[in-house]
Design a protein around this nucleic acid. Structure first.
Length: 605
RNA sequence: GCGCGAUUAGCUCAGAUGGAUAGAGCGUCGGCCUCCGGAGCCGAAGGCCGCAGGUUCGAAUCCUGCAUCGCGCGCCA
């Protein structure tokens, strides 16, 4: 892996602001499409304009730094704050507070957008957005409906998300499940953020592992005929292997008993792969994960031909021969050591096909590649990037998300597991026990690169300690309010001018402020490839609603005698519901209109 | 040994790309129950952000070193 001391900047984005893809839109002017421009962008544009005015008057000189709006920790510091005056102080040789004061004057009320500007602390500019602007933003949410969380941030750039890609040698276990949701949600986020996304599963149907599986099946097959069973070191112990062996016995009898490997290996391998893929697809299907394309390694090799790939590497001078093997000089691109691409017996290595695969992805026209890998594959990132670079691709086009392990517990009691011990926890078991929604939600609750403790007891709890339940309950509660209103004969609220003006409680305004940020949050989570940001945002939003609901249940209810307030609050609930439904949709978690009663669950089962 | 990741409240974790007084959930303690779903809500206590330096107006965040834990370090995939 690249180290921090130089020479490696091709592989690991070297500076902090490159840690995520800067996938465009950052420099886009915030002027067009006023109706969809976020408040944040509008405020930024005004500050930039004010700054330019100061520069014109010679108050500040030199290159102007980018205007950054910081979300203040305290509401007393406004809706946005900018430390721009602090940053300018040195080059302008002026006191930060003086610059801030000048900016404040130049800003004015920003065309009615701002209701108050304060110079605070060492020279922060605290900006208070006018209530009318927030309500206007809320109106846009209601007009857009569920699509409001979407944006054109990604400019339809084509992105390929490759994930799961588990070997077809057994069912998916719990860690695969985490990778599956992570990839699926990242793809969903990219889609919502305006990228053109494709989901892909790479099938490693070539090579040793599948041969080992074939031999394992054959051993089991022989065992079914009463032969002594002595598993070798490389052996797949699972029962699913026996199932395949049984099928083969039924179909072919003892035809392959005591036969040399050549007589049965291909058949047993193909049948094994076929059976495992069927199972994997079924598991993923039950988990709500679908792919646009399944790429077979075998077919890839047949299609692109590895000879050509090696020749291209050779033509670039990236290959040398030693001990009869062909080596890719990946160290030239920052890798730890050079890697064999063609073995002595002229068989290509796994690595060779992997370069070919990534080359193929780029050649298919994708501008960005996201790979969701288990953390144990971390060591491969450098060499794959090296391969891409050697073939003339931008290595920075590849983003690898490393997903850490999942440890399972029940009410704090950890469940021991290990593949070796044969105590692997299969994904389908977990989904069956905890349910698809809870499992998905928990798997993306934490940052991908942090280990995850999955408490299956908590996940199945029908109570609000359970974060999934909390969120879904919120959605159900909003639906329930709408149903109640309809039952009382209150007409469906319409978005007439002034319809939202009755929203005046601080909690209501705060919810609006949080709500209208959703598209930004989605775009940020997409660029960073960090689904957990959505989960945290959902918890924040729904937490505010539960709190609001309870706080005012005896005083300022949504449905009241005041038709103005009732209409405005119903509209707010409607917008919140839309946001929640859209976000849960991206997470692949259901947004129920009412929480199922326990007996209804039993009836379904 | 080398590389990668982690280290923040009793526990599980956030911290928006260097900003003002470091946050949430659970747990603990103290309040609020006749419902638009109490399957809740409000409040409080609880922190040398692993340790030591450095960079600058300013660091949990960036750099260096150290410590502890996890994962890698195949001509396996």
């Amino acid at each position: 892996m690249p180290s921090s001391h130089g020479g490696s900047h091709w592989f690991e984005p070297s500076s902090a602001h490159h840690q995520s893809f800067d996938w465009g839109a950052a420099g886009a002017p915030a002027t067009q499409m006023a109706s969809q421009t976020s408040i944040r962008e509008r405020v930024t544009a005004h500050v930039e304009r004010a700054l330019a005015a100061l520069a014109k008057d010679g108050l500040v000189t030199g290159a102007l730094p980018a205007v950054e709006l910081v979300p203040p920790k305290s509401a007393a510091h406004g809706d946005y704050a900018t430390p721009i005056a602090l940053a300018l102080a040195k080059s302008a040789k002026k006191k930060p507070r003086d610059i801030a004061e000048a900016l404040k004057r130049a800003l004015g009320d920003a065309g009615g957008l701002l209701e108050k500007i304060e110079v605070a602390g060492p020279g922060f500019l605290n900006l208070f957005v006018a209530k009318a602007a927030w309500l206007e933003a809320l109106a846009h949410v209601l007009q857009a409906g569920e699509t409001f969380v979407r944006s054109d941030h990604g400019k339809r750039e084509r992105v390929l998300v490759e994930f799961v890609s588990a070997n077809p040698t057994g069912p998916l276990h719990i860690a695969h499940g985490r990778g599956a949701v992570t990839g699926d949600v990242i793809a969903g986020l990219l889609d919502a953020a305006g990228y053109d996304v494709s989901r892909e599963y790479y099938i490693n149907d070539l090579g040793n592992q599948t041969d080992i599986m074939a031999r394992s099946i054959h051993l089991r097959y022989a065992e079914l005929f009463g032969r002594a069973f002595a598993p070798p070191e490389d052996f797949y112990p699972g029962d699913y292997i026996i199932d395949v062996a049984r099928e083969l016995k039924t179909e072919h009898g003892d035809r392959f008993l005591d036969q040399p490997e050549a007589a049965w290996l291909t058949l047993f391998r193909d049948r094994g792969i076929d059976a495992m893929l069927r199972r994997i697809r079924a598991d993923l299907d039950a988990f709500g994960v679908r792919f646009d394309r399944w790429t077979s390694e075998k077919e890839l090799v047949a299609r692109v031909g590895l000879d050509g790939l090696v020749e291209r590497l050779e033509a670039g001078g990236h290959v040398f021969t030693e001990d009869g093997k062909k080596w890719f000089r990946s160290t030239a691109f920052g890798d730890d050591k050079d890697r064999v691409v063609v073995r002595e017996d002229s068989r290509p290595t796994y690595f060779a096909t992997d370069i070919a695969y990534h080359d193929d992805k780029m050649r298919r026209g994708f501008k960005r590649l996201v790979n969701v890998w288990g953390a144990d594959h971390g060591g491969y990132v450098a060499r794959v990037r090296a391969g891409m670079q050697a073939l003339g691709h931008d290595p920075a086009a590849l983003k690898v998300v490393l997903v850490q392990m999942v440890s399972l517990s029940r009410g704090g009691e950890s469940v021991r597991m290990g593949k070796r011990l044969g105590t692997a926890v299969w994904l389908d078991e977990v989904v069956r026990e905890a349910g698809r929604d809870a499992t998905r939600y928990f798997f993306v609750m934490r940052r991908s690169d942090a280990q995850l403790d999955f408490d299956i007891e908590l996940a199945t709890k029908k109570s609000l300690d359970n974060p999934v339940y909390y969120a879904q309950m919120g959605h159900a509660r909003m639906c329930s309010i709408a149903r109640r209103a309809a039952a009382q004969g209150i007409p469906a609220p319409t978005l007439a001018p002034g319809a939202l003006d009755a929203l005046a409680l601080p909690e209501e305004l705060q919810m609006v402020k949080t709500l209208v940020r959703a598209p930004e949050v989605v775009a940020a989570a997409a660029d960073l490839c960090e689904p957990h940001l959505i989960v945290h945002y959902v918890q924040d939003l729904i937490g505010q609603f539960h709190s609001y609901y309870t706080l005012y249940k005896n005083s300022e209810k949504v449905i009241s005698d005041d038709p103005q307030k009732t209409r405005a609050r119903l509209l707010l609930c409607q917008a919140l519901r839309l946001a929640l439904a859209a976000l849960l949709g991206i997470l692949g978690v259901e947004a129920p209109e009412q929480m199922a009663a326990a007996d209804a669950d039993a009836a379904d089962a």
